[in-house]
């Protein structure tokens, strides 16, 4: 598995180096994007959802076919209030998988007809059962994280306490334990992770590609393996893999783009069968809606109130 993946990456890298980037639009025919269409769609995302912005990334990793100040898109500090495993039930009920696998067009529209309801439900009415599950899973994962690591990886705070412990007395500083106490649930310390979500252009597949960088509640980097807990369990380690980010340092979790074109083509076909002419500048809104089925708990999927057509019929 790992070897075939690596071979494929090498092959893909070679093809990317020797082929020119797509310049002719095949958006409606194949569900793919040319470089300039990616820029148009990205500009539209940034203007409609201002928490997204363009970045230039590492200068050494810059792609010559993209403008230097528009190498990729990123939104930072996106909350993820619970683990994916605990919303699996609601996710199944909402028919998330239908999007990928069901040939029936109605299935896709049913999923996306009411994403708002779904998230409201998740946020406001957590059942006791799912809360229990969250707690157990989260605790377990943290223990297993430490179990797996070498000793030298665990920074022991006690080592630093003596030389460094500093006490500033100040009545106007909110004690930081307060912040935890303000949280609505006692298990929230374990649940509130945040994510940096980035979208890059994949030249080989000619589609956008989503990357996730996770942080724990004190904004310390999460091991990419732990990120998989926030991914739909059907996709973890299959469509979601851990790879080098094309514009940033380190390993990050990513939704593999091999089926993006096909899925986007299907979404576009559904829209066109409903008499809606899809516009290329809305590609990333559609794309992020599709990605939301793979990463159900990360709350970046907002301001999607654009006209998708007569899906209510």
């Amino acid at each position: 598995m790992a070897l075939t993946q690596r071979l494929h990456e090498a092959f893909k890298g070679t093809v990317e180096r020797i082929t020119a980037a797509r310049t002719v639009s095949a958006f409606k025919e194949k569900g793919v994007l040319s470089v300039s269409e990616f820029i148009i769609a990205g500009d539209n995302l940034v203007s409609k959802c201002p928490t997204w912005s363009w970045e230039s990334g590492e200068p050494s990793k810059r792609k010559s076919y993209l403008p230097s100040e528009k190498q990729f898109l990123i939104t930072r500090n996106v909350p993820c209030l619970r683990r994916a495993a605990s919303v699996e039930e609601e996710y199944e009920a909402a028919g998330g998988e239908v999007l990928l696998d069901n040939e029936d067009n109605d299935g896709w529209l049913a999923t996306h007809g009411k994403p708002k309801d779904k998230s409201d439900e998740v946020e406001n009415l957590p059942s006791m059962e799912t809360l229990e599950i969250t707690k157990h899973r989260a605790v377990k994962s943290i223990i297993s994280e430490f179990g797996d690591q070498d000793d030298e990886d665990i920074p022991d705070m006690a080592d630093y306490e003596e030389p460094d412990n500093l006490v500033e007395v100040d009545a106007a500083t909110l004690p930081s334990t307060y912040i935890v106490a303000q949280e609505p649930d006692d298990d929230n310390i374990l649940r509130t992770r945040t994510y940096d979500v980035s979208v890059t252009y994949d030249k080989y597949y000619q589609t956008p590609r989503v990357w996730l960088t996770g942080y724990d509640e004190s904004r310390m980097l999460l091991e990419p393996e732990l990120v998989l807990e926030d991914v739909s369990q059907d996709h973890a380690r299959k469509t979601v893999t851990i790879e080098d980010h094309p514009h940033m340092s380190g390993k990050h979790a990513s939704v593999h783009p091999c089926r993006h074109g096909a899925v986007m083509k299907k979404i576009i076909d559904v829209l066109m069968s409903r008499g809606v002419e899809p516009e290329v500048d809305k590609y990333l809104f559609l794309f992020l809606k599709f990605v939301a089925s793979v990463i159900p708990t990360i709350e970046y999927d907002y301001t999607m109130d654009f006209d998708l057509g007569s899906s209510s019929n």
């Binding site: 920074p155 500093l166 091991e223 390993k251």
Partner: peptide, 14 residues
Amino acid sequence: KGRQVPRSISLAKS
């Protein structure tokens, strides 16, 4: 985590 102490991070993996 409630105390005034430094942090540390290991990036050996990457």
